[in-house]
Computed example of a mutant assay.
Amino acid sequence: MHTLRHALRQIAQRDMAQDAAHDLPHLDRVWENCRIIAADMGGTSRPLLAAAYLHDLVNLPKNAPNRAQASALSAQAAVSHLQALGFPENEIAETTHAIAAHSFSAGIEPETDTARILRDADRLDALGAIGIARAFAVSGALNRPLYDADDPFARTRDANDTQFALDHWPRKLLRLPDDMQTETGRRIAQKRLATMHRFLTDLADEIGTQAPTHWI
């Protein structure tokens, strides 16, 4: 597995368009999350390792019109690499399904443990301290303000994460724990969610407004 991980990491480093939230450290964290979850479900596998390192092979910008197709395109792009690495057809199918189903925007339901583990592992990286850092890094790259100065926590307006960084929290991030597919994923997600709730309370205090209890 060590040799395979090295080969997959090299593929990602060469072929994946990297940004602050989708880079080699992200892939390493997702693989570590996979290992933790899989340890409670019978152990890791070659398809799980491959899916962890190739799931963002086609990394489209968050504001790209075809962003929802990124996971399917990544799955397609992974096939030739998996074939070159000697994966049999059944392992290729297992890997590519997991890649296609990991995306929040794609809306594809995971049908295997490999797909369920990868999806939870990837979403865990959008939560907690690292999730906070990634969310603001992405929004900063898109030149979006941190929050709406008149209504930071969208109390009297609809949250719009195409306009404000903080609005991405109720639109997506704070909803992720409810859709975890594994028991271990749910447990870790709740711990990381608590970190985000503390941040929101501290942020509200620092900007002189009430904590967003409707988000917590």
Rank of each mutant, 00 (worst) to 15 (best):
W169D: 00
D150K: 12
Q18F: 01
M16S: 09
Q13T: 10
I99N: 09
A70T: 09
F164N: 03
E89V: 10
T112A: 08
G86Q: 09
A21D: 08
H197W: 04
L60K: 11
M16A: 11
A72S: 15
T3W: 08
A133H: 09
S45T: 13
A165Q: 00
V30L: 00
L60D: 10
T201L: 01
S74T: 08
T182A: 07
Q69M: 08
R5A: 13
A12Q: 09
R134M: 00
T96I: 14
A51R: 06
D19H: 15
V30C: 06
N33E: 14
R116Q: 15
H197Y: 12
D179I: 11
P47A: 05
A38S: 12
D148Y: 03
H55L: 10
A100T: 01
A93V: 06
C34M: 02
E32K: 14
T44V: 12
L57R: 09
D179W: 13
A78W: 11
H102I: 04
K62S: 05
R157K: 08
G86L: 05
L27P: 05
R46Q: 12
L48P: 07
A52M: 02
A154N: 12
E94Q: 11
P110L: 12
L85M: 14
Q181G: 09
S105I: 05
D125H: 05
Q76E: 15
A84E: 15
R198D: 11
Y147E: 00
P177H: 03
I132A: 00
P212E: 06
